[in-house]
Design a protein around this nucleic acid. Sequence first.
DNA 1: ATGTAC
Length: 473
Amino acid sequence: MELKRINDYTWEIPKEGDMKVPALIYTSAKLLESVRRDMTLKQAKNVACLRGIQRKSYVMPDAHQGYGFPIGGVAAFDMDDGIISPGGVGYDINCGVRLLRTDYTERDIHERRAQLLAEMSKAVPAGVGKGGITRLSRNVLLEVCAKGAEWAVENGYGTREDLERTEESGRMEAADPSYLSPRAVERGIPQLGTLGAGNHFLEIQKVSEIYDEQVSRVFGIDSVGQVLMMIHCGSRGLGHQVASDYIRLMENKFGIRGLPDRELINAPIRSQLGERYYKSMSAAVNYAFANRQMIAHWVRDVFAKVMGSSEGMSQVYDVCHNVAKFEKHKIDGKEREVCIHRKGATRSFGPGREEIPEIFRSVGQPVIIPGSMGTASYILVGTSEAEQLSFGSTAHGAGRVMSRHEALRRFRGEQIKQEMESRGIELKSTSWKGVAEEASGAYKDVDEVVKVSHKAGLGKLVAKVVPVGVMKG
DNA sequence: ATGTAC
């Protein structure tokens, strides 16, 4: 494939054939090798062919192949001529990350980290298909999907301050749960307040490096050794069902003829089906916000029980990694509203954007990038440059280099756990198979991913954290 | 990611 090197961290696939715009890949020579081995670049070119796409089809440094669109793909579409696509959001709608700070240091919790993990695994149900401890009626589930994290706070899970420190304040107003299929509702009812499986986790972390003292202090990250709690999960079976439902509905309505790949099925944003998908997707987004809100509340309960207090455990921020949204961006010098798809990408807004909470508005929003199991994670800050470079987006994680299937062939869960424990990291999981699939060897080097983000200007380094204890689904 | 197939 023809790739034009723009600079050390940017490559372009020039417009050709049916492409309406070029594709732009933020990567390094090292990361480019793995991206060239799978379908990522072909998929980025396919996205560039879709109707109404603006500026470029963007690829983030952690990208790998996904359903239709690459994971680590960002694309914006014209509100009048453009499309919205379930494959551009992904199956796990509003998969995302929440970060809590604490007043504890690693020393304070060292002796009790196994106990913290044991209590968390009692308090937070995890695993494939796992149900939760809440008993919801159908009507309450619909209310959760309409109100998101607000519902959770109103029902005793956490504080209003948490909402301020959540993307969209924990609630997408566009949500209309009445468009959810009966099956989506049915799957959502038992799973609210559950972690799930795959790459979802709870992690006890300690700050290992601070790159920007001023910004980190604004985020509530004060010193090396400070303990943080990271929560990574999404919308479970409900979001998955919304994606499946609308992929099928759109295929039936529009057919797959003329698409470069049937997985790119989409609907005009202004069509009935496009609007219904957006409202249903927003309902799933809200379900995921409520999910993380409840889990965060239980994590605080666990600290209160094991450590004696959860005081000081305020939220740093909560970000979406898989979402489509209507946002205003400057295109060809003119401010316009577009439909942004961020699939495996984090919003990275810089100073001044009205969408970010006032407390962060002078420095930019927190960007939370989890690594793979047993590796570092990073806190970055959004930049103004990113708005021109990538519609205000950066990476969302390490990004796979190996399929789950291949990881199962190569790794053993028991051995991975042993290796982590020899490095002083506790691991608790419901599934050896899950641990093998999530081995860090199946992922890219997150240090390299965030270096590209920093150097390219997509999001700037603020702090590095390392795991102390990990709970996997 | 996912009641890893409806």
